[in-house]
Design a protein around this nucleic acid. Structure first.
Lengths: 111, 111
DNA sequence: CTATCTTATCGTATATTTACGATATAAGAT
DNA sequence: ATCTTATATCGTAAATATACGATAAGATAG
């Protein structure tokens, strides 16, 4: 009954899993969409657009920030968030590397 | 104190989130890697390769199957799993659509 | 300084995930 | 028919995630 056995896997596997986990909730997908579409990455607007309480949105933003997918900066009394495209690109390419390459090898060598 | 508010989001957002959730654990990433690398998608071998109990691996495989990322077929006393490349490709392209396109628009129009 | 507005954090309830051992199931071997 | 062998499922404990209201913290306005 030991839990959280994630350390037993490689760092890359953990990194990819963390990336996926950050995107594993529709609210966070929606937040990323908003951030990507707007020129100004305002925080309060996200709350207004989502069917969630302000504290919940704040929590989701924190998770995205912790995962490195989003950067945040303070602008007076409000907070400004934006997508960290560099990190996103890195994850996306690792993701593609992991599968697209392997796919070519043996797409149909299966049961 | 209502939970599980995921239905409040679009179907696409939920689909992408489910896809991400399926990949949000390093064990499942590792399983997918094994499935992608081997010509034969044997089940017992996965158990031997992972630092997890057989029942736990079986549970992870079930989640991957439920998410549609993996297909399973019975082969006598053993089970055979393989990656559902079609589903995977679909998710990957939706994923790329969501971000790569938007990225071009406003990569640096941020705080 | 006080009021207000914006966001973050705390506390908390419930749901879900993760993990294991034990057991069931189903096929092949003896 | 019985014994392995392989896998799935059940039961269960602990960790983590989700959500909200309440409250704190920090900045600007008056």
């Amino acid at each position: 009954m030991a839990f959280h056995k994630k350390e037993a896997f490689t760092q890359k596997e953990q990194d990819l899993a963390n990336f996926a986990k950050a995107m594993s909730h529709p609210a966070r997908i929606a937040i990323l969409k908003v951030l990507a579409q707007r020129n100004e990455c305002i925080c309060g607007e996200i709350v207004a657009l989502l069917p969630l309480a302000q504290s919940t949105v704040s929590q989701h933003l924190k998770e995205l920030k912790t995962a490195g997918l989003v950067d945040g900066s303070v602008d007076g009394p409000r907070s400004c968030y934006c997508i960290n495209w560099k990190a996103f690109e890195k994850f996306n390419s690792e993701f593609n590397f992991l599968f697209t390459n392997l796919k070519v090898k043996n797409e149909k060598a299966c049961c």
